[in-house]
């Protein structure tokens, strides 16, 4: 018996003791008392328990012992096998998760590159379409205003306005012409990049779904086992057995009717 058990036994025994004084004992006519220590009592109880356990162990027949050992071994084998299988499943799932994660990362990178390419191509086309930078327009207008201020005394407002309008309209015409002449190859490149991006986006969504499925698979736990190995049924020793049996039959018949009808 362990020290902890002995202490517990000691505590249990103490709870049964009552305290009395020598005077009280004397007054009750007791002149002599027999004394036994708590340790001794605990040891005695311990001996008895050990003897009972030993005798019970001996009472088990060899066949029963073998049966229990065989069952325990079988259960252990089953559990070991199960743990091994579960480890394999987990390992496989983790590999799938890693693979999916890699694919998703690669696709994201591809998408990012394609997006940058598209942006750059669009910028090039915009610049090409303008032919000259918008600063040209600003500079032209500034020049005109300077000239207009220089001739302020002589130039009429209508003249200035007409010149400004003529300049702006000429500028716009030139730009329209340039836009019409934009490199068709650049346009084609943009369309291609847009298509590629759409495709990459769809593949990325697919890969993300796969990853999410793989992750949920990785999180699947084997579940919690029921305490019952076999189908149970009403215990014959239970209270109101007959009544409960009748009720079970009624519930079953009602369900049979519904489910037979449903099939």
């Amino acid at each position: 018996m362990s020290g902890e058990n002995r202490r517990s036994l000691w505590g249990e025994l103490s709870s049964f003791f009552r305290t009395t004084s020598v005077d009280k004992l004397k007054s009750a006519g007791v002149g002599k008392v027999r004394v036994i220590g708590l340790d001794q009592i605990a040891r005695l109880v311990e001996d008895v328990v050990d003897r009972v356990v030993d005798s019970r162990r001996l009472e088990l027949e060899e066949r029963e012992r073998d049966f229990i050992v065989a069952e325990a071994r079988e259960e252990l084998d089953r559990l070991t096998k199960e743990v091994r299988e579960l480890s394999h499943v987990r390992e496989r799932t983790m590999q799938e998760v890693a693979l999916s994660q890699r694919r998703v990362d690669e696709l994201r990178l591809d998408l990012q590159r394609a997006s940058q390419e598209l942006e750059s191509a669009q910028r090039d086309v915009r610049v090409g379409a303008l032919g000259a930078s918008p600063e040209d327009l600003n500079q032209g207008l500034q020049r005109l205003v300077r000239e207009a201020l220089g001739d302020a005394g002589r130039t009429k407002a209508e003249q200035l306005s007409a010149r400004l309008l003529a300049f702006v309209s000429g500028y716009l015409d030139r730009q329209r012409e340039v836009v019409r002449e934009v490199d068709p190859a650049a346009q084609e490149q943009i369309v291609q990049l847009e298509r590629r991006m759409a495709k990459l986006k769809s593949r990325l969504a697919q890969a993300e779904d796969e990853l999410s499925r793989a992750l949920s698979g990785a999180q699947v736990e084997p579940g919690i086992a029921s305490v019952f190995r076999g189908v149970q049924g009403l215990d014959k020793g239970s209270g109101q057995f007959k009544k409960k049996q009748g009720l079970m039959d009624v519930i079953f018949q009602a369900n049979l009717k519904i489910q037979k009808g449903a099939e």
Partner: peptide, 10 residues
């Protein structure tokens, strides 16, 4: 009618 069984293993 089935009899009551103990926990798994029994």
């Amino acid at each position: 009618m089935g009899s009551n069984q103990g926990p798994a293993g029994a």
